[in-house]
């Protein structure tokens, strides 16, 4: 029983991380139609910015600085690289792939290829007893952050003018323009938002894994893409459900099966969902 509890909370912690990465990725694809391979770079920039602040200054500001760095990277990438290429989707994908490779190389040249140890709040090293299991507190940090972000995103999409524009744009962005709205501004916004969430995931992931390395973002991005596809492009709720499914499946199969079976099972889940519901669990809706 205690093993099941521990695996569940660990799986949910991982799910939280996937959700933070995938929700931005999903909104960017749903609204702007961009398959953004540079999303992992937003995460890495956030992670290193947070790491730099935490090691050279203080732990407290690491998260806001990581979020701000991720957001700034997201906005910059949209304005400089993505925006001139909206009518050329193939070049756009290639540009994001190139950017992600260049970003990894740049981080490597500055801080080296080896993992750097990531400072974390002292309390996250403690454990809490849950139904007889001793659960490390860092899981709760991740889960709490993801739940907060989920609630905030849903409120933003539901209650604000830009939320309305994003939900409508995911359905039909040409019609949003035909109502006199500059949908490109909303594109920049979702890139910034996605960058901010990826930056948060970078810092929290660094704390969770205890280290950061240049390739970390790209590694997590693969699972985030799977979550996006399973969840339905452009759906935040679908993303949350899919992230939980993927995180739990991966943890349980890795523990009870042979090593590496967890990743294979995630791909199998993806295949099953695509066969049964090609639009993902939520179809193409935002909420």
């Amino acid at each position: 029983m205690s093993t099941v509890v521990l695996l569940t909370l660990t799986g949910l912690g991982l799910a939280a991380l996937y959700f933070l990465i995938a929700s931005g990725l999903s909104l960017v694809f749903g609204l702007a139609g961009v398959l953004n391979f540079a999303h992992g770079l937003f995460l890495s920039v956030g992670a290193y910015a947070g790491w730099f602040v935490a090691t050279h200054w203080a732990l407290g500001p690491a998260i806001p600085v990581g979020v701000a760095a991720g957001a700034a990277t997201g906005a910059l990438v949209e304005l400089v690289v993505i925006r001139p290429l909206y009518r050329r989707p193939t070049e756009q994908v290639l540009a994001t792939v190139g950017l992600s490779l260049a970003g990894v190389a740049l981080l490597q040249s500055i801080w080296g290829a080896d993992p750097r140890s990531y400072p974390r709040p002292a309390w996250t090293a403690h454990t809490t007893g849950v139904l007889g299991a001793q659960v490390p507190d860092d899981r709760f940090l991740l889960i709490g952050a993801a739940v907060l972000v989920l609630a905030a995103l849903l409120a933003f999409l539901r209650w604000t003018r830009y939320g309305l524009i994003i939900r409508a744009g995911v359905e039909n962005r040409a019609m949003v323009s035909a109502l006199g709205i500059d949908v490109r501004a909303a594109f920049t916004l979702v890139f910034t938002l996605g960058g901010a969430l990826a930056g948060a995931a970078g810092v929290l992931g660094g704390m969770y894994f205890g280290s950061v390395s240049p390739g970390q973002g790209a590694g997590l991005l693969i699972f985030a893409f799977i979550v996006v596809v399973i969840g339905g492009l452009g759906s935040v709720t679908g993303c949350a459900v899919a992230a939980v499914a993927v995180g739990l499946l991966q943890q349980f199969v890795n523990y009870y099966g042979t090593s590496g079976a967890g990743d294979v099972s995630v791909v199998a889940l993806l295949a099953v969902v695509l066969l049964l519901r090609p639009g993902g669990v939520a179809g193409k809706v935002t909420a």
Partner: peptide, 29 residues
């Protein structure tokens, strides 16, 4: 969007209401 803001209204062939939005939200948008 600039032409539309200058007063060119468009009602497309297949209506293109936003199915996932409420009537009030469609209007508000």
């Amino acid at each position: 969007h600039r032409l539309v803001r200058d007063g060119l209204g468009y009602v497309p062939e297949d209506r293109c209401v936003f199915a996932g939005l409420t009537v009030a939200e469609n209007l508000r948008l």
